[in-house]
């Protein structure tokens, strides 16, 4: 971060806070998330990936802006819609594709797939197939940091659906009682599978839940990179200072269905198209260009870099070996 911004600077938070190289890298990773998921979707259609997957296309600003100030020592817990978090935290898309293709070179050696993708070395403790499953785990990771006297923080991503799980309430309460360095980041994309938040949740904003647990709660436009980055920044500062947890709600939208089985019967084409006009990547790109961080050609080059990385990743995955069938029970327990 640069700290030489003038006091009267009224440019967006990200522009006045981060160095141009950081902003360029953030844009690159957002393109990488988009192209990765498009590549995964295409590979799925071609039968190269089995099972299912949950795409976060349209939510890239939430993932990237939240991870902007995290180091490898900082942890995240992710969700079933976790590809973006993984890439934002620094994962290699080749190893991610390899995992999706069920290959031994994948992050989980082909045992986890999309729903359990993790990269422990970059602090990503993993996606989760259980809604709300990561919430208590994130609190545990924050407990470790506090107990060992480290100043790293844990970001706990969860969706709007998880806010009605008991684990959410138990986790927020304990994090607050013990003043743990955890940032609860709700990605509210409007629907828990097909059920609208307005039909499932008694409070207007999920951030309103924070007051029940005596922590700050803020609702921001999750498609506005700077708004997310600023809210998460304040929460990280608070956590690192030992003042405890915060709840940040990023209001966003998934362009694709819940999973591959979704027929979109619970929302209108008009609603989806309206949200597509609020593309977080196009918006961030325009902001960077407007503030002179990049020009159109440089932004195009960033997008092309991401595309090339995705193509190389798919090639790596395709050429990687599958796990040995005889290893089906390997990794159940530690190997001596």
């Amino acid at each position: 971060m640069t700290s030489d911004a003038p006091a009267t600077d009224n440019r967006p938070f990200a522009i006045r806070t981060y160095a141009p190289a950081q902003l360029r890298e953030a844009l690159r990773r957002m393109y990488l998330i988009r192209r990765f998921e498009e590549g995964a979707e295409d590979s799925y259609m071609r039968g190269l990936i089995h099972g299912t997957m949950h795409l976060s296309i349209g939510q890239e600003a939430s993932a990237m802006a939240t991870c902007m100030e995290l180091t490898d020592a900082d942890k995240i817990t992710s969700t079933h819609r976790g590809h973006g978090h993984c890439i934002a935290k620094g994962a290699d898309v080749g190893r991610m594709f390899a995992e999706f293709f069920g290959k031994e070179t994948g992050y989980c050696h082909g045992r986890g797939g999309s729903m359990h993708i993790a990269d422990v070395r970059t602090g990503n403790l993993g996606a989760n197939g259980i809604v709300g499953g990561g919430l208590p785990i994130a609190v545990g990771a924050a407990l470790t940091a506090k107990r060992l006297g480290r100043d790293d923080v844990t970001v706990c991503f969860f969706g709007d659906g998880a806010n009605n799980e008991g684990a959410f309430h138990e986790a927020l309460n304990m994090a607050s009682v013990w003043k743990l360095p955890v940032i609860f980041v709700c990605e509210n994309n409007g629907y828990g599978m097909s059920t609208a938040v307005t039909r499932s949740t008694a409070v207007r904003h999920i951030a309103d839940r924070a007051s029940a647990y005596s922590m700050p709660g803020i609702t921001v436009d999750g498609n506005d990179f700077s708004a997310v980055a600023e809210a998460v920044h304040a929460a990280i500062v608070r956590a690192r200072a030992g003042d405890g947890p915060s709840l940040v709600e990023n209001v966003t939208y998934r362009w694709r269905g819940h999973s591959k089985s979704d027929r979109n019967r619970y929302r209108t084409k008009e609603e989806i198209e309206e949200w597509m006009t609020r593309d977080p990547i196009a918006r961030f790109r325009s902001e960077l260009i407007a503030h002179g961080i990049l020009d159109e050609a440089a932004a195009d080059a960033v997008a092309a870099e991401a595309m090339a990385e995705v193509e190389a990743g798919i090639a790596f995955a395709k050429s990687s070996p599958a796990p040995a069938i005889g290893d089906v029970t390997r990794y159940v327990y530690a190997e001596n």
Partner: peptide, 28 residues
């Protein structure tokens, strides 16, 4: 009390905190 921690009556959360702590370097 930092090492002998009374938890709230939250078995799901409490067990999950123990899992997360174990995953990141403690032995709860």
């Amino acid at each position: 009390p930092d090492r002998v921690m009374d938890t709230p009556i939250s078995e799901l959360g409490g067990a999950g905190v123990a899992v997360g702590a174990a995953l990141t370097g403690l032995k709860p």
